[in-house]
Write a protein that binds this DNA or RNA. Sequence first.
DNA 1: CAGTATCCGCTTTGATACTG
DNA 2: CAGTATCAAAGCGGATACTG
Lengths: 122, 122
Amino acid sequence: MAEPLDPDMFTGCPPVAAPIRIGDKWTAKIIRCLETGPRRFTELQSVLRGITPKVLTESLRAMERDGFLTRTPYAEIPPRVEYELTGLGRTLLEPMNAGCEWSRKHLADLIHARDAWQAPAP
Amino acid sequence: MAEPLDPDMFTGCPPVAAPIRIGDKWTAKIIRCLETGPRRFTELQSVLRGITPKVLTESLRAMERDGFLTRTPYAEIPPRVEYELTGLGRTLLEPMNAGCEWSRKHLADLIHARDAWQAPAP
DNA sequence: CAGTATCCGCTTTGATACTG
DNA sequence: CAGTATCAAAGCGGATACTG
């Protein structure tokens, strides 16, 4: 069993201007949530603040379709469903980490460039 | 001076299903075009098949604003404008290469998973 | 708890035509 | 040559409400 996810695990990393994206808007964060073990729908929803159930379902289905995670429902009342990374899903951690590294090293430069930017006078 | 770009340099890599994206739809390809030296607007447009001048301009402006490339117009007739990667722009090659590596190693698995996919019966 | 069902708006991308 | 101007379409992501 994995410990509860840190409720603030993403507060530091909104997509300020990061030019690197994995999958759709939520894919990378979902992968981070599943990195330490399987999670249930509601666990994900509470950490991914603001995501609606519709969008979370869509993201999870797309990732399942692409072979990045598995969905296993348990026949209990109340229902329980667990999402777990596959080996293929785990391979995405490598390019994700490359993207994070880039941000750590260079995102400040991008922000600075954007601040200093003056659109060319028409 | 750089040699002409291979007109087919991107024919092998449409975004089949690659889950890794740098910037907007064209950013990564523009960076590849500029990797070997500065290029003019028309050179880019001819290699990025199907891109309209409006969209190419938008992408280039966004990249200039973010400090990824420089735009230098020459006061000639006919006009000439050259786009060149900055050092910051070049740093994106690292995560880009990580993404390409991922595709080489794992994209086939994704495609296969997608082929085998059966949406759960409602 | 783990979703569906509708409806909606913004952003992204493109088609087409025109210009300094 | 290197763009700009307009218009239109598509794609995502979201709000809200309801259900097995």
